[in-house]
Design a protein around this nucleic acid. Sequence first.
DNA 1: CCTTTCGGTGTACGACTGTGCACTGATATC
DNA 2: GATATCAGTGCACAGTCGTACACCGAAAGG
Lengths: 230, 230
Amino acid sequence: MNSRNPPERTPGRSPNLRDERKLQTRQALLDAALVLARQGGSLASLSLREVAREAGVVPTAFYRHFRDMDELGLALVDDVCLRLRQIIREARMSARGARDIAIQSSVRGFVQYVLVNDRAFEFLTRERFGARPVVRQAVAREIQYFVGELASDLRAVAPFAAMPSDDLEMIAHLVVHTVLSLSADLLELPEGQRVREHELTARAIKQLRLIFLGALQWRPERGAVAPPPG
Amino acid sequence: MNSRNPPERTPGRSPNLRDERKLQTRQALLDAALVLARQGGSLASLSLREVAREAGVVPTAFYRHFRDMDELGLALVDDVCLRLRQIIREARMSARGARDIAIQSSVRGFVQYVLVNDRAFEFLTRERFGARPVVRQAVAREIQYFVGELASDLRAVAPFAAMPSDDLEMIAHLVVHTVLSLSADLLELPEGQRVREHELTARAIKQLRLIFLGALQWRPERGAVAPPPG
DNA sequence: CCTTTCGGTGTACGACTGTGCACTGATATC
DNA sequence: GATATCAGTGCACAGTCGTACACCGAAAGG
């Protein structure tokens, strides 16, 4: 049985001891790839054998879990984003009902989260423009998902209640990408550069304030973009 | 026997025929790397031998020009950004004296430029977060250079004349990264997706309008960001 | 002219790669 | 308890890799 997906939860029976072990080495492979991708630079410059070695497993055992490195890459994106989504969900819950957007504290929270989960974020920002198209698309899908969620959250805030979905998505897209840019800059920082970290954070806070300043002025009916000439 | 060559810019000595040939194969190596990096995904997944092969040269000849792939990567960034800078400089010249910022036509021009020079832009967006730190830093330097230029251009526009440099850079940074995000999205498009291309362009135009809307409202003295708690 | 320079060639090596195949032995199933 | 399953092993193979080395021949320079 070649498992494109993680060992099914209850394939019909109780949690097998064997399945549990299999899940363990599968996770070991994923972790190994994440660690190596960090120090090596990206998935693309990683060999199957390296990953297997780091995971403490013989190369051919790799195939019991993934067809190739592409499939592992996809699984890694899923794995990383699953945890990420849970955190975001909690943040959304706790922010629900707030009558305005607390930019400063949100950004600070985000920065802390990025720094704590730096391995995951480094992986995502790397592979977002990485060498493997399927992985790239998977990351793009996840980002689009976050954009959608943010847009629907914004809808709950007074000034955006009546805004057309297109424009709301446009704004959410701008916000998400500004934040991703911050994350990428943070991760490029050498270890323990708190000063520079504060500078970057402060700049992003200003940028988001400016964006929301613009968003409050935004008049959808005047925002139409003419079709291109020709 | 072409002894009456057009006068080269004679960097140190006379325009050697041998030096000229050397420059040719050097360029062939750079071009080969650019082409392969496009289809292969990134520099990191490229081998020295592949590049030499594509350039029509024996592997060991590579060392006559670059110490390793890292050095070639740096040269490629320089090469690509040199051309890019020239174009940008022309655009700045022709825009000088304009009393306002023509967002729509600027973005349209940029989009055309990206699509024409897709190989170069794909390379830059890929390596910006790529596996090789030195290359990444080189790209970051170039982007920072563009941010600086834009900031100094903005200073010439009335509403920004008196703005603190920090805030002006913050805005320029936001603009540049929004435009880079557009470029990355464009390049991800499958061949000849004009409709989607127009959508992406329209969204970016809106985003820039919104940014400038916010920028006009920006009050530097109220934008101070409190130091982080703790 | 003869000598030097040097970009490019050809061969060779050891290290590492992905993957096929036969296997082992603990675990699950009957 | 006998049997079947299958995650993980060990070995083998053909390819590719980076790079060291000796070499060639055209251009440069006296």
